[in-house]
Each structure stands twice: as C-alpha cells, then as structure tokens.
Amino acid sequence: MRRCSKGARHDFSPKVFLGHQLRSSGKAEGEEALDILAKSPATARHISFKLAQYFVADEPPPPLVERLGRPVSGDRRRYPGGAQGAVHQQRVLESYGHKYKTPYHFVVSAARAAGVPVNNTRPLLAAISQLGMPLFGCLTPDGYKNTEAAWLSPDATTRRISFATAFARGGLPVGSLPRTRHAVLSDSTATPPDEPGRRRAPPNKSSARP
C-alpha cells in the first residue's frame, strides 16, 4: 500500500478509526491504522474469502471461509488461510475443472500446454489485453474479478477461440526475440556496409586521429 505523508498538511486533531482512538502522532497514525486493519477479524475474513474463491469456487462455502480465517490456536498473527493451507483442502481437489480461467490463466496455460519456448512475451501480453485483462492494468483498486460471471460471455469465448486458432497455427511470434528499440532504429537508418553503389559517410573530422 502506498501512502503519503505531508507534515504541514496533516490533520493532528483526534481521530477514531474503526472504533479505535488514534494517537495524534502524525505519520505514525498511518502505521497504527495499518496495524488496526491487520488485526481486524474482517481483514482475515476478507482475505480468506479471496483465497477460497481463487482456489475453490466463485461462491466458496462459508464454513471453509470461516475456517481459513480462524487464528491458529490463539495466535492472532497466524492464520491457516495461507495458500499452503488452502491448497491442502479437499475442496480444492474437488473443484478441479470447475473454475473458469481468467484471461491471464487461459493465455499462460495455453502457452504451457503448447510447450513452445517463449522468448517474446509481447504477443501473449497483447492477447491478455485483447481478452480484457491487461496485465497490471486494472483501473479499480480492488483488482480484476476472479469469477466466471466476470469473464464468461459469447464475445469473450469467440476471442479465446480466435487466440487459440492463431496460437495453434504458429501465428503468434512467441519464439522470436522481441524487436528492441535499437533494432527498430537500425532497420530504418542502417546502411549495409558492403552494398555496391553506396558510399559511406566520411569519418567525423573532430574524432579522427591526426
């Protein structure tokens, strides 16, 4: 989380944050607020829900969410809701083949399934963008949705099939090295050294040795 503190503009009046009285301490108030958020059961529930939704189902069973958000034997800083804890849930295994892939998952899994060496990720990034999920380009702070309702549509399916067709016939240059800025400039400006009928520019006099 990025946070900004400008001392002169800070409001030093007493504040109440989620029912807690904050000490008027300037920049440290932000740290205290983050601590309150980290210790809040609502935060644990929210993260547990997100984990369960990612690994299990769009609407995960409430008992699973509750279990993932429960502190480990009295230690309020440890939750079983870590990725490792969720992965070992039987429900994760049962959900295999049910979660609809996001565009990111779909494109990356297609590249993995194809087994082709990927030296150039730009076509894949472009495909992810065309499918509606530009990498790190979500406009809202809550991030991309991880549900079927957000991604499954006739238009999206058509686009995915188009990508699959182009990718399968080798229409995406993922194996070639990406064109660098230097290469682009060279193509338009370079003169082949041994091309007949062309004269090379004389060397710069200021840099030439006497």
């Binding site: 295999y96 083949g97 049910h98 979660k99 609809y100 892939k101 998952h105 779909f106 899994s109 297609a110 399934a113 194809a114 399916t157 995915r160 099939i161 990508f163 699959a164 067709t165 990718f167 399968a168 016939r169 080798g170």
Partner: peptide, 30 residues
C-alpha cells in the same frame, strides 16, 4: 468429450487439433 469428437480431433491436422484443444470448453476451466 464424446467418442466421435475425440476421434475427429485425433484425425485432424496437428494445428487444428491444437486449436480445438486450446479452444475447447474444458481447457477454459482449471
């Protein structure tokens, strides 16, 4: 996937077969 569908995919050219697999509803789920 039905038997005839699976056979049709098996007989298809390699690129088409790959496209059919990558574009199948099964592949769109994880």
């Amino acid at each position: 996937m039905t038997g005839p569908t699976r056979e049709a995919i098996a007989e298809a050219p390699q690129a088409l077969r790959a496209a059919l697999i990558l574009g199948s509803p099964d592949f769109m789920r994880r």
